[in-house]
Each structure stands twice: as C-alpha cells, then as structure tokens.
Design a protein around this nucleic acid. Structure first.
Lengths: 200, 200
DNA sequence: ACCCAACTTTACACTGTGTAAAGTTGACAA
DNA sequence: TTGTCAACTTTACACAGTGTAAAGTTGGGT
C-alpha cells in the first residue's frame, strides 16, 4: 500500500541489503551502509544500536519483501507425506539462495556476538519445525523409513538442508541450483521414504 | 626422535594449539599466542608473516602430531566397497573433532584471506579424494546405488562429511560423537550402497 | 674482545566499531 | 514571526587488534 517517501530507517535497511547482495560483492561496514543510504555514519547509529542490530533488522526486512512465511507454508498443502517432504525441500532449498548472503554474515557474527547467535538460532529452529512436519507427515502415512526415528530423521534432514550444505554444494561441488535441488530431493527421498508395506 | 629443547618456532605453534583447544575457549590474538609461548609479540612476527600464516603452520603442526595421513589411509585396507566406505566415514568422522577448532578459525579467515582459503581448500580436496576412493570401491564392487553417478555420489558424500555438518550435528542437534558416527554410517550406507544384483 | 642472530622493547600507523557532543535544518505551532 | 523540537550532520575521540619499524639486549661461538 505504501509508496510513501522512504524514511531514513528504511533507506538504511535497503542500503544494507543492496550492499549485501551486490555483485561484485562489497564490504558492509557501517560507513559503507551510510554512504549507500545517503546519510551520515552517525545516522545509522541513531537507528540501530550496533552492526549486529542493523543486520538482524535487515534480515527481518528481507523476510517481509520475500514473503518468507507464505512460501514455506506451501508445503502444508501436500496430500501425501512424500509430497510434503519434497515440497519442503523445494521450498526451503529455493529460499536459501535468496537469504544466503545475509545468513553468512549473521552466522559469522554469531561466533562472537550473542545477539546474532540467538537471531540465527531462532530462524533455524523455525526451519527445523518445517523438517519435523515433513517427517511427521511421512510417519503418519507409514512411509517413514524404519531406519530412523522421527527425531533422528528430523535432525538429519535439518542438517542436510543447512545453509552451509547449500554453500558447499554450490561452491565446492560446483552444482547449480537445479542440480542442488535434484540431488537433495533424491537423497532425502532415498533416506527417509520407504514404500508402504502391503500388510495392514 | 627429537626431545631437544623446543625452539621458539615450535613453542609458538604449540602455544597456538594450546589456546585454540583450551577449555574454556580463549582468544587467539597474536599477543595471546606470544604470552602463552613466553615470548614477545614481535617474536611471533619474526617467525610468521601474519596471523593467517601462523594458523596455517599450526594446522600442519597439528597434522604431524595426529599422524593424519596414516589414520585416513587405514580405510584403504578394507576388503569390500561397503567396508571401505564405512571405514572412511569412521576415520574422517573421528578425525573432525580433533581438528574442529582450528578448522573453524581457518574457515572464518577464508572469507577475507586468500591464503587461508587456499589452505583450507587444499585440505578439502584431499578429503574429497578419500570420498572418491570409497565411492569408486563401491562402484568397482557393483554395489554403488544406481541413483547416483560416481561423481555425484562423491560430491554428496563429501558434503555430508563436511566439518560444518559435524558442527551442526553435534551442536544444533545435540548429538554426541557416537551418535554422529552411527547416524552418518547408516545414512551414507542407505544413500550409496545397494545390494549386488543376482544377475552377472 | 668481538660479532651475530635471536630476541625484546618501545613506539607508531592503520582499520573499523562505537561514543560524545556541538552544530544545522526544516516543519510545525503559538 | 519567532521559537522549538526532532532528525540529521559534523567533528572528534577512545579502543581493540594487526602489522611495521627500529633501536636495544644477550648469550654462544670464534
């Protein structure tokens, strides 16, 4: 609804994302953000306590523009457990590239900054719930592989869909996004799905 | 053979490892290392160009004391492809906790430091060869799952055995080392091994 | 007695974060 | 019209950590 003049706070958040997703990659120092936003460095500190605070706010800001929740909720419409698993892998796997850059910064801040660590942990816990829901759906269908308990399957799926795995797949392995999705869909299916037995 | 008086270089490297693996965790600034080694901060710069150089040297130093090569070579004695896969998972999986701390530092330096990135990449490429050898052994036995090409299987195994996956498993998932090994052994077996067909 | 290499001491440049405080400006109100 | 207030700018500085520079010190070998 609102195409009103962007206030300074919004300009700063947008500038942060612009820099974070810039190609070629650029630094995201407080002064870079300020320059990009066309305000003074001090103005940034007027709106955000510190760099971590800014980056966490930028993450939320990005969520809004990406309509994160809606996209991840799509897998809830699947009819079977397997469908739901695959829809979740596709949704989350497709989402990662769009948050990758800021996720990386947040993760690396997490090592020294409690607030960043908590912010990232919360997102990862949300994501784990998606994993749990997919595994539970398989389990309800009776098509969860007997090799894994629901909890272990959830954790393993959670691990396999981590941002760092996506990074490794697309950087170190050199897979493109399509290949990543193909392989992960197949791998998770192989790991967690087993044909329903004929017996009741 | 040599229990000769440790020279300064060795004292510095040992001090670096002491700090890196200290519990509770401690900082590893150049001054911390110097203090721990009982030398001046400048002495550290006399032996190592910069912090990255020091940490890479410490990694090699750790390799020597851990006899890395020998441990990872053990899987070469396995008789079947499956045995070899499982031996490799066990060997590498058991190795990760011992290099985890320094690996983390090297990885985080990699983001800004070309030398650190190269050093870590080299190690990961060595590790990938172990993955490839295990997958090739399966393939030679005719027990590699037809779902994956040898290359894809190698990359996927490589990804699953990454340090960050170990970190996620033992931190976020809260698995202990034994559970990590159990789950990964089972998961890699499920993914990559298939019963030999009866037909020739 | 001298020298040299290895080390220490002191001091400083540089980057980036964060704090402090005084100045500017433009909108809105009395 | 003047005043005031919030948002912003400008300038300046403290602090941590890396890395450089250069002048001491010291102890073993010749």
């Amino acid at each position: 609804m609102s195409t009103s003049p962007p206030n300074t706070r919004t300009k700063i958040l947008q500038a942060t994302l612009d820099l974070l997703f810039a190609d070629p990659p650029s630094k995201t120092r407080m002064s870079d953000v300020a320059t990009q936003a066309g305000v003074s460095r001090q103005a940034v500190y007027l709106h955000f306590e510190n760099r971590t605070d800014l980056l966490i706010a930028a993450t939320h800001f990005l969520d809004e523009t990406l309509d994160t929740k809606a996209r991840l909720a799509a897998s809830r419409n699947a009819r079977s457990g397997l469908e739901r698993l695959q829809a979740f892998v596709a949704a989350w796997g497709g989402y990662i590239p769009e948050i990758y850059k800021i996720a990386t910064v947040l993760i690396s801040l997490s090592k020294t900054d409690k607030a960043a660590a908590t912010a990232w942990e919360n997102r990862m816990q949300d994501m784990r719930e998606g994993c749990a829901a997919a595994i539970d759906a398989l389990n309800a269908d009776g098509t969860l592989s007997p090799s894994f308990s629901p909890d272990d399957a959830t954790d393993l799926l959670w691990t396999m869909l981590s941002v760092s795995n996506w990074e490794h797949s697309t950087r170190a392995c050199g897979w493109d996004q399509e290949k990543y999705l193909t392989v992960l869909t197949l791998a998770t299916r192989t790991l967690f799905y087993s044909e329903p037995s004929k017996l009741p």
